[in-house]
Computed example of a mutant assay.
Amino acid sequence: MENNLENLTIGVFAKAAGVNVETIRFYQRKGLLPEPDKPYGSIRRYGAADVTRVRFVKSAQRLGFSLDEIAELLRLDDGTHCEEASSLAEHKLQDVREKMADLARMEAVLSDLVCACHSRQGNVSCPLITSLQGGASVTGSAVP
């Protein structure tokens, strides 16, 4: 199918791009993908450039870019705006690093709480539930 990506119906286009038809329509409503003209009495047709564009959007989404950020990247796609694209990527990288730090903190607290739950004895209240209710965590501080 890679060799013949011109004159595609929306269903074939969606399959070639690895998405469903509703994703194509959604991207069109969001302005990420142009809607081709519909010849009178016929159906819209898509081509290789459309497939490439949808694959670009999906790749950017997998990297964590929002649809607004992707729209900006698409605006820069002529290859002459590398500095602007790099700036967007640097901001996304900082966001990812901040999320990773947040996740590491969450993992540490949850790990401590799970260990406390497994090591409790008798009819002592559950450390996890107590912590979530605003009590002290096993490390002595409130859960973030």
Results as ranks from 00 to 15, higher is better:
residue 17 A to C: 15
residue 17 A to V: 15
residue 17 A to M: 15
residue 18 G to I: 14
residue 18 G to E: 14
residue 18 G to C: 13
residue 18 G to L: 14
residue 18 G to R: 14
residue 18 G to P: 13
residue 20 N to A: 13
residue 20 N to H: 14
residue 21 V to P: 15
residue 21 V to I: 15
residue 21 V to K: 15
residue 21 V to E: 15
residue 21 V to Y: 14
residue 21 V to N: 15
residue 22 E to C: 06
residue 22 E to K: 13
residue 23 T to Y: 11
residue 24 I to V: 15
residue 25 R to N: 13
residue 25 R to A: 11
residue 25 R to C: 11
residue 26 F to Q: 12
residue 26 F to P: 08
residue 27 Y to V: 05
residue 27 Y to M: 04
residue 27 Y to K: 06
residue 27 Y to T: 07
residue 27 Y to D: 06
residue 27 Y to N: 06
residue 28 Q to C: 08
residue 29 R to S: 13
residue 29 R to V: 08
residue 29 R to A: 10
residue 29 R to I: 07
residue 29 R to E: 14
residue 30 K to S: 07
residue 30 K to V: 03
residue 30 K to A: 11
residue 31 G to A: 11
residue 31 G to H: 10
residue 32 L to I: 06
residue 32 L to C: 04
residue 33 L to R: 12
residue 33 L to G: 09
residue 33 L to Y: 09
residue 33 L to I: 11
residue 34 P to Q: 05
residue 34 P to I: 03
residue 34 P to G: 03
residue 35 E to R: 12
residue 35 E to H: 02
residue 37 D to R: 04
residue 37 D to Q: 08
residue 37 D to Y: 00
residue 38 K to A: 07
residue 38 K to D: 04
residue 39 P to S: 07
residue 39 P to G: 11
residue 39 P to T: 06
residue 39 P to K: 10
residue 39 P to L: 05
residue 40 Y to P: 07
residue 40 Y to V: 07
residue 40 Y to G: 02
residue 41 G to K: 10
residue 41 G to I: 09
residue 41 G to T: 11
residue 41 G to C: 08
residue 41 G to Y: 08
residue 42 S to K: 15
residue 42 S to A: 13
residue 42 S to W: 10
residue 43 I to E: 13
residue 44 R to Y: 08
residue 44 R to A: 12
residue 45 R to E: 11
residue 46 Y to L: 10
residue 46 Y to W: 13
residue 47 G to N: 14
residue 47 G to C: 06
residue 47 G to Y: 05
residue 47 G to T: 09
residue 48 A to Y: 03
residue 49 A to R: 12
residue 49 A to S: 12
residue 49 A to N: 10
residue 50 D to N: 10
residue 50 D to S: 10
residue 50 D to G: 13
residue 50 D to C: 01
residue 51 V to P: 05
residue 53 R to T: 05
residue 53 R to P: 04
residue 53 R to N: 03
residue 53 R to E: 04
residue 54 V to R: 02
residue 54 V to T: 05
residue 54 V to L: 01
residue 54 V to A: 01
residue 54 V to K: 03
residue 55 R to Q: 10
residue 55 R to P: 00
residue 55 R to N: 02
residue 56 F to M: 03
residue 57 V to L: 02
residue 57 V to K: 03
residue 57 V to S: 03
residue 57 V to C: 04
residue 59 S to R: 12
residue 59 S to D: 08
residue 59 S to G: 00
residue 61 Q to E: 01
residue 61 Q to G: 00
residue 61 Q to C: 00
residue 62 R to I: 00
residue 62 R to A: 06
residue 63 L to V: 01
residue 63 L to M: 08
residue 64 G to H: 03
residue 64 G to I: 01
residue 64 G to Y: 02
residue 65 F to V: 01
residue 65 F to S: 06
residue 66 S to K: 08
residue 66 S to H: 05
residue 66 S to M: 02
residue 66 S to D: 06
residue 67 L to K: 02
residue 67 L to Y: 09
residue 67 L to N: 09
residue 68 D to S: 09
residue 68 D to K: 13
residue 68 D to G: 08
residue 68 D to T: 07
residue 69 E to D: 04
residue 69 E to Q: 12
residue 70 I to L: 02
residue 70 I to W: 01
residue 70 I to S: 01
residue 71 A to I: 03
residue 71 A to Q: 11
residue 72 E to N: 09
residue 72 E to Q: 13
residue 72 E to K: 13
residue 72 E to S: 09
residue 72 E to Y: 03
residue 73 L to S: 05
residue 73 L to Q: 07
residue 73 L to N: 05
